[in-house]
Write a protein that binds this DNA or RNA. Structure first.
Lengths: 269, 269
DNA sequence: GCAACTTTGTGCGTGCCTTCACAAGCGACT
DNA sequence: AGTCGCTTGTGAAGGCACGCACAAAGTTGC
C-alpha cells in the first residue's frame, strides 16, 4: 500500500494507540508521577467518550441551577449504568461526596480539564462540499470551545469565498495557515479520493488529531490519532438491524411480505 | 425521565439490544434452523460495522475488475487484522476458496444480503437545519441503496420547499408519510430539545431504526435500535488526545509552551 | 499423481470492558 | 454523641473481542 512505516488508522471505538500505553501504570518506580500524565493515559477510550456525554448533561444541570447530582440521576439522564458512570468518574479522581453526590460545578471543571477543554482547540476543516459546508456553519463547535479557524478546498469556485466570516483557502496553504493559527484538530470532509493527500498535508503541518468524514481508510504515522465518522456505514448497520428484526418477526408469523419462509429465512418456492 | 418502560438508548459501538440475544446460538434443539435468522442474530455488532467497510472496498475492487481478493489484501486496504477479517467473514458463511481468496462478486452479494441491502431502505430525515440540509443533499445515501424518501421540519419557512426534488413536510405528517412510503430508517438532525418528540413520532409511525445526530439521549422501547452520531463528542475525544500528547511531549522535554511543568503536568509557579 | 505452496477457517489464550455487590464515608436526625 | 440512611468508590467476576498460530483444503508445478 503506501509505506511500511504507516499504520492503518481504523479508529472505531477501540483506539489502538491509546491501549498500548495502558500498561505504563505498571511501570516500575518513577515514584511521585501519579499526576495528570499517568492518569490521563490510563483512561479507557470508551470512558473518554462517555465523559464527554456526562459533561454536556452537567452543563445543562448547571444552567438549571442544580448544585449536586447523584450517580443514579446522571446515569439515568445519559443512559448509562450507574456503576459504570462512577468508575468512569473515578478515573479522573475522587470528586464525589458520599451520601450526597457530585458537586456539579466542580465536576464540570475537572471534566473540562481532563478533556483538554480549558485550552481552545483550533479546528481546520478541509473539503467545503455538501457536508463540509454544514460543518463550517455548525454552531455546536465554536460554542463548545472548538472554533473553526481555517477552511480549505481545491475548487477555484470555493477558494476565496467566506463562510461564517471565515475565508476558504486553497489546500496548498494548509502548512502555513495551520502553523500560524495553531490548529490542533483537522476535519476531513473531502471525497474519498482526495482524503489521503489532504491527510498527509495536515500531518505535515503538525496536526496530530484528525476527524475523518471521508469514506476512506487513512494511513497515518503512529503518533497521529484518527477518528472516523462514516455515515454510509452507520446506515448500513441500521439496515442490518432492519433485516434482523424483519427475519425475527417472520419467525414469529412464518410469513414475510405475504410469502411463507422456512427456517433459513428464504422464500419457499 | 419519561417512562419506565423505555430503555435509554446509548448505542455507541456496542449495541445493547443485539448482545443480549447472542446466547440464542446455545438455544436447545430447534434443529435445522441454523439459517439466516440464527446466523444474523449472532454477528457481533463490531463485526457488522466492519462488514460494511469491507463491502465498500470490495465494490471498488469489483469496478477495477478484480476477480478475487485474499484476506491479507482486503485487510490491509481496510486497516484491519487479517485474522479478524476472516473471522468477520466467517460469520456470514464460508465463501472463500482456500489457496485462492474470496471471489469478489460472490462476497459482495453475500454481504449485501447480510446487511439487508438487497431491499431498498427508505430513509426519513427530520430537521432541515444546517446539518439536515447537507444530509438531504448527500449523494452517498441514495447511491448506496438508501434513498431519502421524506423530509420533515417544523419551521414554516422550510415546510413546502423542495430539496433535491423532495418536498419538506411538517412533522405532524410523519405518521402518514412514513407509512405510505415504507420508511424503515429515520434520521434525526434537529436541535436537542425537539429530538425526543420527533423520535416518539417516528416510533409511533413504525420506524424501528433511528440514526440520531442530535446531542440528546433518546428514550425508546426495547425493540427500537438507535445509533448516535455526536460530532461534539467526537471533537472532545480528539481534544483529550491532544491534551494527552501535549502532556506526553512535556514529560520528554519538561517544558510546556515555554513553561516548566512538574510530574503532574501542572505549571510550576 | 505427488509434493510444495498458498490461503482460508478456527480453537485458544489474553486483555479490556462491563456489571454486581459491598465496604467505606458523609450527612442528618434524634 | 450516636445511629441511621444514603451515596460513593472499588474489588472481583463474567463476557466479549482481538489476535496468534495452526490445521484443513485447494492450487500450481513437475
Amino acid at each position: 500500500m503506501h509505506q511500511a512505516t504507516r499504520s492503518a488508522a481504523v479508529a472505531g471505538s477501540t483506539g489502538p494507540s491509546s491501549i498500548e500505553e495502558t500498561l505504563s501504570v505498571t511501570k516500575p518506580p518513577h515514584a511521585g508521577s501519579e499526576g495528570a500524565a499517568a492518569r490521563l493515559r490510563s483512561i479507557p477510550e470508551a470512558s473518554v467518550a462517555r465523559l464527554a456525554v456526562y459533561l454536556r448533561k452537567l452543563g445543562e444541570l448547571a444552567e438549571e441551577g442544580a448544585d449536586t447530582v447523584s450517580s443514579d440521576e446522571l446515569a439515568a439522564a445519559t443512559g448509562v449504568n450507574p456503576a459504570k458512570l462512577r468508575k468512569d468518574l473515578s478515573y479522573i479522581g475522587s470528586y464525589g461526596i458520599r451520601g450526597v453526590g457530585y458537586e456539579v460545578a466542580a465536576l464540570v471543571h475537572q471534566l473540562e480539564r481532563t478533556l483538554g477543554l480549558n485550552h481552545r482547540q483550533a479546528v481546520a476543516l478541509v473539503g467545503i462540499g455538501n457536508l463540509g459546508h454544514a460543518l463550517a456553519g455548525y454552531s455546536g463547535f465554536g460554542g463548545r470551545g472548538f472554533p473553526v479557524a481555517a477552511l480549505f478546498d481545491v475548487d477555484p469556485d470555493l477558494v476565496g469565498i467566506h463562510i461564517n466570516g471565515i475565508l476558504v483557502e486553497h489546500i496548498r496553504e494548509i502548512p502555513r495557515v495551520c502553523a500560524e493559527r495553531g490548529v490542533t484538530i483537522g476535519m476531513i470532509a473531502t471525497p474519498a479520493q482526495g482524503a489521503q493527500a489532504v491527510c498527509d498535508l495536515l500531518v505535515d503541518a503538525g496536526v496530530r488529531c484528525i476527524l475523518n468524514f471521508a469514506p476512506a481508510v487513512l494511513q497515518v504515522p503512529d503518533e497521529v490519532e484518527v477518528r472516523k465518522v462514516d455515515l454510509a456505514v452507520e446506515l448500513q448497520i441500521l439496515a442490518f438491524h432492519v433485516a434482523r428484526k424483519h427475519v425475527a418477526a417472520a419467525e414469529q408469523t412464518g410469513v414475510v411480505n405475504g410469502h411463507p419462509v422456512n427456517g433459513a429465512g428464504r422464500l419457499v418456492p
